[in-house]
Lab assay of single mutants.
Amino acid sequence: MTEYKLVVVGAGGVGKSALTIQLIQNHFVDEYDPTIEDSYRKQVVIDGETCLLDILDTAGQEEYSAMRDQYMRTGEGFLCVFAINNTKSFEDIHHYREQIKRVKDSEDVPMVLVGNKCDLPSRTVDTKQAQDLARSYGIPFIETSAKTRQGVDDAFYTLVREIRKHKEKMSKDGKKKKKKSKTKCVIM
Rank of each mutant, 00 (worst) to 15 (best):
residue 63 E to T: 05
residue 63 E to A: 04
residue 64 Y to D: 14
residue 64 Y to H: 10
residue 64 Y to M: 12
residue 64 Y to W: 07
residue 64 Y to Q: 14
residue 64 Y to N: 15
residue 64 Y to C: 10
residue 64 Y to K: 13
residue 65 S to W: 06
residue 65 S to F: 05
residue 66 A to T: 10
residue 66 A to C: 11
residue 66 A to M: 10
residue 67 M to C: 12
residue 67 M to D: 14
residue 67 M to G: 12
residue 67 M to S: 13
residue 67 M to W: 07
residue 68 R to Q: 15
residue 68 R to W: 06
residue 68 R to H: 13
residue 69 D to Y: 03
residue 69 D to K: 03
residue 70 Q to P: 12
residue 70 Q to G: 07
residue 70 Q to A: 07
residue 70 Q to T: 07
residue 70 Q to M: 09
residue 71 Y to W: 06
residue 71 Y to T: 13
residue 72 M to N: 07
residue 72 M to Q: 06
residue 72 M to Y: 09
residue 73 R to T: 10
residue 73 R to C: 10
residue 73 R to I: 06
residue 74 T to V: 07
residue 74 T to G: 13
residue 74 T to Y: 08
residue 75 G to S: 11
residue 75 G to E: 04
residue 76 E to K: 03
residue 76 E to Y: 13
residue 76 E to C: 14
residue 76 E to A: 11
residue 78 F to Q: 00
residue 78 F to W: 03
residue 78 F to C: 03
residue 79 L to T: 00
residue 79 L to C: 03
residue 80 C to T: 03
residue 81 V to C: 09
residue 81 V to G: 02
residue 82 F to N: 02
residue 84 I to C: 14
residue 84 I to M: 15
residue 84 I to L: 15
residue 86 N to K: 04
residue 86 N to Q: 05
residue 88 K to S: 13
residue 88 K to R: 09
residue 90 F to I: 12
residue 90 F to L: 14
residue 90 F to C: 06
residue 93 I to K: 00
residue 93 I to G: 02
residue 94 H to A: 14
residue 95 H to G: 06
residue 95 H to W: 10
residue 97 R to F: 15
residue 97 R to A: 14
residue 97 R to S: 09
residue 98 E to C: 02
residue 98 E to V: 01
residue 98 E to L: 02
residue 99 Q to I: 13
residue 100 I to T: 01
residue 100 I to Y: 02
residue 101 K to L: 09
residue 101 K to C: 06
residue 102 R to Y: 03
residue 102 R to W: 04
residue 102 R to Q: 06
residue 103 V to M: 09
residue 103 V to L: 14
residue 104 K to P: 03
residue 105 D to R: 07
residue 105 D to E: 12
residue 105 D to A: 08
residue 106 S to Q: 11
residue 106 S to E: 12
residue 106 S to I: 11
residue 106 S to K: 06
residue 106 S to T: 11
residue 107 E to T: 08
residue 107 E to S: 10
residue 107 E to I: 13
residue 108 D to E: 08
residue 108 D to I: 04
residue 108 D to W: 04
residue 109 V to S: 03
residue 109 V to R: 02
residue 109 V to T: 05
residue 109 V to L: 04
residue 109 V to K: 02
residue 110 P to K: 02
residue 110 P to G: 01
residue 111 M to S: 01
residue 111 M to A: 01
residue 112 V to T: 02
residue 112 V to S: 00
residue 112 V to K: 00
residue 113 L to N: 01
residue 114 V to F: 03
residue 114 V to S: 01
residue 114 V to M: 08
residue 114 V to Y: 01
residue 115 G to N: 04
residue 115 G to S: 07
residue 115 G to L: 12
residue 116 N to K: 00
residue 116 N to S: 13
residue 116 N to Y: 00
residue 117 K to R: 12
residue 117 K to C: 15
residue 117 K to I: 15
residue 118 C to E: 08
residue 118 C to H: 08
residue 118 C to V: 09
residue 119 D to F: 03
residue 119 D to C: 05
residue 120 L to V: 11
residue 122 S to N: 13
residue 122 S to C: 09
residue 122 S to K: 08
residue 123 R to E: 14
residue 124 T to I: 09
residue 124 T to G: 12
residue 124 T to W: 07
residue 124 T to Y: 09
residue 125 V to N: 10
residue 125 V to M: 12
residue 125 V to K: 08
residue 125 V to S: 10
residue 126 D to Q: 06
residue 126 D to P: 05
residue 126 D to V: 06
